[in-house]
């Protein structure tokens, strides 16, 4: 089943094959879960978002107008659910709990604590960005997508994505520069 194209799997799923849809879930669950995590959601929230996204996608497969680009359509559903969850204040504090758990299990707690502190501040700077800039930043710097691919996923022009990235760079530079100076002076 995993050797079939997205189009073939979507068409089989539309005809009622749960196995075909299961193959699509397997194909895309890891990158989408990573995206939700990078957008700042705790593991439990990211899991709930993805579960909702896949179930919605299955129920509305008829709205996927181009099955060859199922991945982009599924990404949009996931990104919209991330946006909705963020607007409802999905618990970003969970990241703090996860960091504490990492510290508790790390053999070098001092170094781990410094890294944890840095990550919290970087995450906070990222969270301060407007949603469209944060999405472009996550896709470019964390997921490794190019501008054109981000434009397709975000339904924006490449010029708009470049502008979002440039604005995000300016905000992040201002927020992260003091952190960088601290690291250098340490």
């Amino acid at each position: 089943m995993q050797t079939l194209s997205d189009r073939e799997l979507v068409e089989r799923a539309r005809s009622g094959s749960h196995d075909a849809f299961g193959a699509l879930v397997e194909r895309y669950q890891d990158p989408l879960f990573r995206y939700a995590r990078h957008m700042g959601f705790a593991e439990a929230d990211a899991r709930d978002i993805l579960q909702d996204a896949f179930i919605r996608a299955f129920r509305h497969l008829d709205r996927c107008s181009d099955p060859d680009r199922f991945d982009g359509w599924l990404f949009k559903i996931t990104a919209n659910l991330c946006r909705t969850a963020a607007s409802k204040g999905a618990n970003r504090d969970e990241h703090g709990l996860e960091e504490v758990m990492l510290l508790e299990t790390n053999p070098d707690p001092e170094t781990a604590a410094e890294a944890s502190s840095r990550r919290r501040r970087i995450r906070a700077a990222l969270a301060e960005l407007p949603e469209d800039q944060r999405q472009a930043t996550v896709l470019f710097y964390l997921e490794g997508y190019g501008v054109k691919e981000i434009a397709e996923r975000a339904e924006a022009s490449p010029s708009a994505i470049k502008m979002r990235l440039k604005r995000a760079r300016e905000s992040l530079k201002a927020a992260l520069r003091p952190l960088e100076d601290e690291v250098r002076s340490a």
Binding site: L32, R37, R118, L126, T137, L172, E180
Partner: peptide
Amino acid sequence: ALGMLREDVRA
């Protein structure tokens, strides 16, 4: 800096 947030996580 952003790379510190990168996670090679699986669902």
